[in-house]
Amino acid sequence: MLIAADRCWIDGALVPDLAVEVVAGRVSALRPLGSDRPDQRVALLMPGCTDLQVNGGGGVLFNADPTPHGIQMIAAAHHRLGTAQILPTVITDAPEVMEAAADAVIAAFGQPGIAGIHIEGPHIAVARRGTHDPRFIRPLDARTMVVLRRLRAAGIPVLLTLAPELAEPALLREATALGVVLSAGHTTATADQARAGMAAGVTMFTHLFNAMPQMTSREPGIIAAAILSEGWCGLIADGVHVSAEMLRVAMQARPRTDRCFLVSDAMPTVGGPDRFTLYGMDIHVQDGALVNSQGSLAGAHIDMLESMRRLIAMTDLSLERAIAMATDLPRQAMGLPRLALASGVRIRDLLALDDSLNMLRLPD
């Protein structure tokens, strides 16, 4: 099969007018099209997205089904929407749930779509817990360190979101030494506390602006510290969690413009029914947002490809930067190898789009 692409995302750049030869479901060659007649023409061909924050999808919540089957269902739902790899994300819960989630990822790792695990909480600030259940919030402790050691011994990439001001610096350094990526989130940290966390190993900030104190003229807080740092900042671009203006502020004020990336913070409604249960509460889609019975946000109802489209629409960001924020940059933040459009890659892991960035089906 021969696919003609107006543009291909290769090594961080858009390369025009290439033909992609496909044999037995894998890319066999990339070359100029010449006078050949393609079997399919697409506007853009790129590796599938990578999402570092996926709580659920396809009607499955990872916390409620922390099993290899649950992970596979979530990954499959996001794959159908253009995301090639995810970090299944377990949020604040009983220690047994975190441990079961770790077991599930160890068992599922190596299967299509699973890039590691994101543990978001329970080591967070109660005052900035969002929808996380306060019953399970606790400081970073020996029990979690055992889970982290087990995951890393199995070669699993691990992202841990916590409130750095509440964690012992020695434990932060120990986690960093294990190769765990530490991200500050659901936090009340001041700018000084954020910088102290970075000195102890924090390299990332979880869904910047959300679940953290907002910056003011006299209290810049963790948001200003994050924006002015060289750390990685995850952004939710659903138009609900962060306004277009604040997205632009965050991206344009960075000393390094390549240190922001997209996350979905997706819940089971992505690729699934329009409601689910979390901590015994009904969560449902309302005007494009996910809310609980009190009207508070509870995750996001968006996938990565739609995030990329909305980011461009809200900020006039270039297509190149938006693609990078959905593909290469989250992988760099986690130390993962780039998903390349190259010979040997499975066609199922590529994303074909039309001029409006809508998905086009590629044959398996």
Rank of each mutant, 00 (worst) to 15 (best):
A326S: 13
M246L: 14
A253H: 08
D133E: 13
M1D: 05
Q332Y: 01
V105D: 01
F62G: 01
A43N: 06
M204F: 07
V249K: 04
V20T: 05
A175Y: 08
Q214D: 04
V240P: 02
T216V: 03
L362Y: 11
I347F: 01
T92R: 01
S343R: 15
M314E: 09
M308V: 15
R218N: 14
D65S: 10
Q111T: 07
L140V: 11
V158K: 00
R338M: 00
A104W: 00
S183D: 02
I124S: 14
R309F: 13
A24W: 00
R7K: 12
M267E: 06
P273E: 15
A127M: 06
L262D: 06
L228Q: 09
L18F: 03
P330K: 06
H186Q: 07
D141E: 05
H79M: 08
L33I: 03
T50L: 11
T176R: 13
D133M: 10
A108S: 12
A211I: 11
N55L: 08
I119R: 02
D65H: 06
V27L: 03
S217T: 02
G59Q: 07
L329S: 03
E96F: 02
P47F: 07
M46G: 10
M325D: 14
G155Y: 12
L140N: 06
E306Y: 06
D11T: 12
L317G: 04
P337L: 00
V181Q: 15
L162I: 14
N63F: 00
D65N: 08
A342T: 13
H301V: 10
E168R: 14
M281H: 13
D354R: 09
A107S: 10
G82W: 12
A154G: 02
T131I: 15
A13M: 11
L247H: 08
L162C: 11
I114D: 00
P95C: 09
A253K: 09
V263R: 11
I10V: 14
V15M: 02
H207K: 11
A352Q: 10
G271C: 12
V242I: 15
D51W: 07
A75V: 14
G25F: 04
R248H: 09
L30R: 03
L360Q: 15
V147W: 00
A154Q: 10
D11R: 11
N55D: 04
T257C: 05
I283F: 06
G48N: 13
D39P: 10
I223R: 06
I236Y: 08
I302Y: 05
D11A: 15
G280S: 12
E120R: 03
S217E: 06
I156V: 13
L329N: 04
Q40E: 14
Y279A: 13
V54C: 15
G234M: 07
I106L: 02
E320H: 04
G231P: 02
T92K: 02
D316E: 13
A289F: 03
A266G: 14
A326Q: 08
L297H: 03
G58W: 07
I137S: 01
L81V: 12
A237P: 11
S28T: 14
V22S: 10
P273W: 07
S356D: 15
L30S: 07
H78D: 14
